[in-house]
Design a protein around this nucleic acid. Structure first.
Lengths: 186, 186, 186, 186
DNA sequence: GATTAACCGAGACGGTACGTCACGTCTTTAA
DNA sequence: TTAAAGACGTGACGTACCGTCTCGGTTAATC
């Protein structure tokens, strides 16, 4: 019973979050700021999300996939196109890297961790679709390999991007794609 | 000129940092605490390190490599042993995950980012040594592939560990190793 | 709107301030200590007072007048009694001199300066009452002189006390009182 | 034995102190700054002065008297001229009030206190000279009164200036002078 | 129509860490 | 021994957020 939650508040909060995230990244986002910009009390936010990070993660999940499914006609072409787009889209973001903050926070919060995992797997969908198409064309045969390719491609990308700092160049993307499909299928 | 920096203070600060990191992770580490435990003023810390994260990163760098170079006689054996050890050693630490915090902080600080990259590449050394040995045995031929294998193995590991949440099981480790060496060497 | 300020916090903070002032003077008072003793967050203090000095000044203002209105029957007697009490009460406090610190701080903060002036004039009240009584008895006639006497008596006292260092002896007090009332009244 | 003290350093330090005091008052003066501007090591300063305040006080003492001895021909005229000059010269100083800081510091340091008292009494000299001249002219007779007048005039001034905040106007100066000489002499 | 219970905005709350600053002392090399 | 240089331990500063709590007031569904 009682007054139902205002659905508009959800949108206002998520919008404010996305805006603040856009300019300033996680560092430039505080709950007070979100509340003020959304025209909402802080308790209204905490009634819906457990923590700042949970909110941010939801805001991210709401946003549509940024890397489109390419269609070049061949698996190799699609994968190279995908990897290149990945590098272009996520490679630019200068200081507004939100994901690392969530990854960190997830270490200390099981619920958040679960959300992050769910989010990550959702974001794998584009790649899975590409592989699925390749499979239908007969360019891939074995199921297990596809799972592996997802980890290898995305893992390499994030590892370079966030940890080793080496550039994820188109040149490297091609090498990587050739590497992962050379020993698959026939 | 002037009074030289006390080398003992460096050690004391790094030691205190490592200790505090051990119990409590980054969350349980504050500069005041480090200063107190090291018997040092906070300014002495800030004179040497730009930020808490730079200090932590240095403390990590000082610590010896935790994953030893295995020696099973074959490349495949070594790689599986290495991957397994990786999972065992880094997989256990539940809340004391220091790296994600540094990865996050590095997004907002160029000097820190450079340090993180340097650290990461240093930590690749064990794996590179394994591959070098495999090369000497004739199990690997092409140089470029070795570079790639490093990214693929470590990338997959951290991607699963930190982002997708899928277990990095011994089973998976074997599959991964087979995947990366199937189309290399002869 | 919003949650109203907790009146109890005001009291707790002022009480803590007065206590800490009592043992240790301004030097022994830090905002962290006040907050801790009052069981209050530091932000709660800063929400109400601009600075440590503003808080101390308020704490002082809350305290009751320490020099009572004497009643000797004659203006001269009252004034001598007052001056003597002044010397006894403020002359004793060795290191816990709060006022000089506030006087200093007030030089750099207009709001604080205004508070100090208000406080000082409030503290003149006792003396004004004495003069008022003298006036009612016919021992004083002209209004302007009373204003002057306040400045002269208190000014001399603080000047000796804080600047020239000469003792404000009972002997001096009498001389001073005779000086200020010799040419008044009649 | 050993290297003799550099006499030039004294001047350099005092000059630097006076300069820094001029722009910024005590608040804008730190020992590091003095040392840097004087081209001197900090220890060289501390070898000569006990504390920042002792240095400042010495710097003040070195400066010549700022209120000149007037010569109007009458005691009343001289006193009014003096009081007016006092108000003009010290009344202007906005935030560079050095004396209050020293007064405060002197409460916690006996040596400094002695220095402050000495300094204050030195600064009374101008006024004493005026009174001495008045005495020679026969406008004052009793010695004790002269002592009192010094305290009353300077006390009132500083009391208004620093504590009660009331303006020390020329009008007030005249009233005060009339008050203190009405009941002296004849 | 009155009651009730959860909602709402605002903003104060206790807590904790931050990075900065200045103090007065100490330690080096050089004169 | 004094000098310049500058590192040292100490400790307070005021700020920024966190996530919670407390107001007065609103908004449905239930009685």
């Amino acid at each position: 019973m009682g007054r139902p939650r205002d659905a508009g508040a959800d949108r206002a909060i998520l919008d404010a979050t996305i805006e603040l995230l856009a300019d300033g990244g996680v560092g430039g986002l505080s709950m007070d700021l979100v509340a003020k910009r959304a025209g909402v009390g802080k308790s209204t936010i905490y009634r819906r999300w457990d923590s700042k990070e949970a909110l941010v993660l939801d805001a991210l999940s709401v946003a549509p996939a940024r890397v489109p499914v390419p269609d070049t006609g061949t698996l190799r072409g699609d994968l190279v196109a995908y990897a290149t787009a990945l590098a272009r889209i996520y490679g630019a973001a200068p200081r507004s890297d939100v994901l690392p903050h969530l990854i960190d926070a997830a270490c200390y919060d099981d619920r958040l961790q679960a959300s992050l995992h769910r989010y990550t797997r959702t974001r794998q969908q584009t790649l899975r679709t590409i592989l699925q198409l390749g499979h239908q064309r007969g360019e891939l045969t074995d199921d297990d390999d596809r799972e592996l390719i997802v980890d290898v491609l995305l893992g390499s990308f994030f590892y370079r991007r966030l940890m080793s700092g080496e550039r994820f160049t188109p040149r490297f993307a091609e090498r990587l794609v050739d590497f992962v499909i050379k020993n698959t299928g026939r």
